[in-house]
Amino acid sequence: MSEMRFILSGFGGQGLLFGGKVIAYTGLIEDRQVSWLPSYGPEMRGGTANCSVTLSDEPIGSPLITNPTAVIAMNQPSVDKFEVDIVPGGIIVIDSALTNSGPARDDITSFMIPATSAAEEEGLKGLANIVCVGKLWAETQFCQRETLDAAIRKAVPARKVAMVDKNLAALELGMSM
């Protein structure tokens, strides 16, 4: 598999950094090259809190992604900021419950899913981030299916172990959308 470069972006508090961690753990489990880099500037306090996650079979150069192969955007500023950077043929997963316009480009594939409202309806409030990761996996298969579940188990901290099943359900929900 060639290098996959993901940007996950939204408001602070939506769990995009955690979503990126789940993807990074899949690379750790499959013994691939991995980097995860958060934004740490003032944008974390509103605007686009985001992280860059790279999975590769070669040593990773810059962990800061400037030309993502896929983007998860959970608010309108994130769509506006990162859509332009996606490589031709790349994809963008957009939470349509929180945005008012999709991408303008026709050389990328966009998936508009109402992740936040669907998660709430399924009793998975606060897990729209993982719904989007599930959708991203369904469209890119960035790891083996069972690796994804194992990554959730690793990424969820011990004190929140009760959340593992809900996270797994959120993945399934995303894949079905």
């Binding site: 990074a24 991995v34 995860w36 880099l37 958060p38 740490y40 962990p63």
Partner: peptide, 10 residues
Amino acid sequence: DGLLGQMMEP
């Protein structure tokens, strides 16, 4: 630098 300090790798 801040890039290396903030990033995660295995």
